[in-house]
């Protein structure tokens, strides 16, 4: 367990002990010092604790482990290990183009002001479907909207390999059209192989060496 989780847990524990003390001995609040203690223990510290807990929860909900903990996502997790460079997520994951422990979120958040919160709100919807709705087949899972090039260009814009690659200059305005999202990076004949979980059964898989994930 890392410090980003341990610190909120310890802080919450201390706040809970203080709250418990105040709840068990409310007669302390008849004195001025007791009133201040009660206000701190039952108002200020719990707010700070929930804030810290929310931050920790939000941070861990961006982890690959978190995303793949639902059974329906297992094939999407496997697709990261497909031994084929043309599979875009696999190429990104295996070559550390995205952090492996935050692989899903890195590509599937919106790089906008409230993009992280929107992504998490969609995640809450997924959890509701997982436990209360009809779980779709992995192959039937689609994006809500077509993938926006903004998410690709968050990392690739300005990089030499992206701007100088010959396939990115098939037409003079190709980069400009990609930047304005008129031409999808995932168009056919470009980076069209994404997770493709429907065809993953016959694929060969990369096995990381010991020490890798």
């Amino acid at each position: 367990m890392d410090t980003t989780t341990l610190i909120p847990i310890f802080f919450t524990m201390i706040v809970a002990v203080l709250g418990l003390f105040t709840a068990m001995r409310p007669e302390f609040t008849s004195a001025r010092g007791g009133k201040i203690l009660a206000f701190v223990a039952l108002c200020i510290l719990p707010v700070l604790s929930v804030w810290a807990g929310f931050d920790a929860q939000l941070d861990r909900s961006t982890s690959t482990q978190f995303c793949l903990s639902c059974h329906v996502m297992a094939d999407f997790g496997k697709s990261l290990y497909v031994d084929d460079k043309s599979y875009l997520p696999a190429a990104h994951f295996q070559n550390n183009f995205v952090p492996r422990d935050h692989a899903c979120f890195t590509c599937h958040t919106d790089y906008t002001m409230f993009g992280d919160y929107k992504a998490k709100w969609r995640g809450v919807h997924h959890v509701i479907v997982q436990y209360l709705g009809t779980i779709p087949k992995p192959a039937d899972i689609k994006l809500y909207t077509p993938y926006n090039n903004r998410e690709c260009l968050h990392c690739h814009a300005g990089s030499r390999v992206y701007e100088e690659a010959a396939p990115h200059h098939k037409t003079p305005d190709m980069l400009a059209r990609a930047a304005s999202n008129q031409l999808s990076c995932m168009s056919s004949d470009c980076h069209e192989f994404v997770h493709d979980v429907a065809d993953i059964g016959g694929a060969a898989f990369w096995k990381p060496k010991a020490g890798g994930q």
Partner: peptide, 8 residues
Amino acid sequence: SLLWTHPL
């Protein structure tokens, strides 16, 4: 909830 990394 902080001890368990899971959507639930």
